[in-house]
Computed example of a mutant assay.
Amino acid sequence: MKKLAILGSTGSIGTSTLSICESFPDRYQPIALAAGLNVDVAFAQCLRWRPQVISIATEELASQLQSQFKAAGITGVEVVHGAAGTVRVATLPEVDFVVSAIVGVAGLEATYAAVKTGKTIGLANKECLVAAGELIIAAAREHNVALLPIDSEHNAVHQCMRGGTPAEVHQIWLTASGGPFRNTPLADFEEITPAQALKHPTWVMGQRITIDSATMMNKGFEVIEACRLFSLPPEQVRVTIHPQSTVHSLVEFIDGSILAQISVTDMRLPILYALAYPERVDATTASLHFDLAALSQLDFSVPDLARFPCLRLAYEAAATGGEACIALNAADEIAVAAFLEGRIPFLGIPRTIELVLQQTSARHPSSIQEVLEADLAARACARDVIAHHFSGVLR
């Protein structure tokens, strides 16, 4: 029985992880949860799972949750809050496996703390490796900790890598749907609205990640993650547009062989793979088996970097490393929010990021505190760029 801590238990990855626990109750038990602001969902999860510890975003919400526990007669669940509470959840001594799925840098300290205490990590938080990957990878090596990717693309690469040694890998291919604008004329990009950008052709996701998919910044972040997870330079991490989203990624070996990972587009599968690794478990009861009829058409194409400048910027940041990657993520988050609020145009997103990167140093932070300080500085820079280069409400 693996005892789990789930960072981001009320989000999509967290709820999918709990679904796996429902399907395999003899294998996985969630004993520590870190929720965000959704106190009602957090309460329902505690009612079902009775964890030892739950962390909620604020002290006020923690008090509210404790009142709900008292009214329902729930005892024995420790309620903590804030960043320190999330660290408490991630480092609980009884925990065997930590699912890191908090969006943004909010989960960074807890994930790093979990690595340093020797926990196996199921990593679904892009920002951890983008902003602090150099530190996290070094700590994982020092403490002999397995970092098992849950993102479908990196999970697919991890599976394909089992077909050879790292020295036998020629390059890896991360697949991308291409988002809603892969065939949109470039002349129309200036007029793209938030409503149009939020209509993803394949996945239902949160707003920021949906916009990141439309700009292909999401794939750029994945390039940086892949470089760090698999110890590869950026030139050995390629991106291919694959609209069907049935091949999740590919690994090309030095002898010319290519292994592809194909499965249903259901996040429970990569979660189960990470939780069970190095085993594979029978997922018949979870309905995760693939219908081969879906392979009737497979299209692949090279992304146009003129159409997707965010992908180019990500490759440049990956080559530089350090604060460039931190600034890439921070500036993107600020720019995407500004776009959704109608304060900058769609192409204002890469323009903002590029201007921030031009003002970013080449330093490599030596601590998580320095990473967080660089993150705050990049966000301030992005706000300044937006204030000076864009004005008024666009639509």
Rank of each mutant, 00 (worst) to 15 (best):
A276P: 02
L250Q: 09
A44M: 14
D40I: 04
A387K: 13
K199H: 09
A362N: 11
I386A: 05
L147R: 08
S9V: 13
T210P: 09
T352P: 02
A84N: 11
A362Y: 12
T210S: 13
L7K: 10
R48L: 05
A110I: 15
I121Q: 07
M267I: 06
R363I: 08
P278A: 15
H248R: 14
V130C: 02
D151R: 03
D255I: 10
E279D: 15
T15K: 13
H388G: 04
I172K: 09
F230N: 12
I31L: 01
E78C: 02
T284P: 03
A317E: 07
V77H: 01
F339Q: 08
R50I: 14
A377T: 08
A156G: 05
R383V: 03
S391P: 07
R141P: 00
D151V: 09
L305S: 06
T175Q: 04
T284C: 11
E59N: 00
L340A: 13
Q29I: 08
N38Y: 04
E127Y: 02
L305G: 06
A380L: 11
L229G: 03
D212S: 01
I224N: 03
L147A: 06
P365L: 09
R27G: 02
G76K: 09
A317G: 14
D332H: 01
T75F: 02
E94K: 05
V336S: 12
A140D: 11
M217H: 05
Q159K: 11
A131K: 03
S367Q: 08
H158N: 07
F43D: 09
F308H: 13
T193A: 02
R307I: 11
H388P: 01
I6H: 01
A35I: 08
G85I: 10
G107S: 03
I172P: 02
A380M: 08
L372W: 07
I192R: 02
V130M: 05
M161C: 09
I121H: 07
L272C: 15
A374C: 07
I102R: 08
V157W: 01
C21E: 07
A72Q: 12
A71C: 03
E190S: 12
E60I: 01
L123I: 14
F43R: 03
A110S: 14
E22D: 15
R208C: 07
I56K: 05
R27P: 00
V87L: 06
I137R: 06
C310W: 07
N125E: 13
S287I: 06
V264D: 15
V53P: 08
I368L: 12
M205Y: 04
Y273F: 15
L357Y: 09
D188Y: 10
A294L: 15
R208S: 10
W173M: 11
G104Y: 06
L292G: 15
V371K: 00
L47I: 13
